[in-house]
Simulated scan of single mutants.
Amino acid sequence: MTALVLIDTQLGLQEIAYYGTERNNPEAEENCGRLLQFFRENQFPVFHVKHNSTELGSPLHPSKIGNNFHPAVEPMINEPVFEKNVNNAFIGTHLESRLKAQNITDLVIAGLTIEHCISSSVRMASNLGFDVTLVSDATAAFDKIGYDGNPYSAEVIFHSELANLKDEFATIKNTETLLNELEKSF
């Protein structure tokens, strides 16, 4: 069985200035919403993960409006929400046990950001034995300053992460391709 896992699709991850100077894939949340709509319409399981930062200044701190889910992916009452305060959706949550209790073997993972919680969670999911599909245009990255002091654009960070996760930890597909494939599988 296949499930959708939406990770940290929260308002605070639109606050670019806190995380860097640029973010790629401005349509990531909308693509997460498209995936969510398809999974709901076809009655596939959906799981939401929410990051509760322990840093008071973070837009994702529970006291901030940025901690709220993006409107495109607001959970429904029957969709489980797992709250975490680390960069891995499986650490400190019951996500793994809930997935296994429902005999879920395949995960479609989307959300924010690829260089943090998405990468950590995709790797862990794969290591736990799940077959993972990462939806490339339903995630995004921020620019970074490297250990060497050199700037790395959001696009470079994004594509480097996809290259690192490809094949060993996940199959990479875009929203349109995945939805077309899922539609044909019925």
Rank of each mutant, 00 (worst) to 15 (best):
K166F: 11
E27H: 11
A140T: 07
N52C: 13
G20W: 01
H116R: 08
I118A: 06
G111W: 09
Q10A: 09
I7Y: 08
E27S: 15
S119L: 05
N180P: 06
F158N: 07
E155A: 15
F47P: 01
L56F: 14
H61G: 02
P62I: 11
I16L: 04
H48V: 02
E155L: 14
T177I: 15
E29N: 11
A28D: 09
G146I: 06
R40N: 01
S160F: 07
N85L: 02
G149R: 10
G57S: 15
R98P: 00
Y152C: 11
I114M: 01
P59W: 03
S160A: 15
H70D: 13
E155R: 07
I91S: 07
V108N: 00
A154E: 02
S63H: 12
R40E: 02
A28I: 09
V132W: 02
I114A: 00
H61A: 05
A17D: 15
M124D: 06
A3I: 15
V81T: 09
I172Q: 04
A17G: 09
F169K: 03
V46Q: 04
K166E: 08
T93I: 01
I172F: 10
N25M: 11
A140I: 13
V46R: 00
F39E: 04
I157M: 10
Y19N: 06
N68I: 04
P80N: 12
K84T: 03
H159Q: 15
F130C: 09
T177L: 13
D106H: 13
H70W: 08
E115Y: 02
P151D: 13
I65C: 05
F82E: 07
G33L: 15
I114K: 01
K64P: 01
C117T: 07
D143F: 13
L11K: 10
Q10L: 05
V132C: 12
L56K: 10
Q37G: 05
F44E: 13
S126C: 14
T133M: 12
G149N: 09
F38R: 06
E79F: 12
I65W: 00
N88Y: 06
L179G: 07
T2R: 08
S121T: 03
E83L: 07
G146N: 11
F142S: 00
I157Q: 04
I118T: 05
F142D: 01
A170Q: 02
R23G: 11
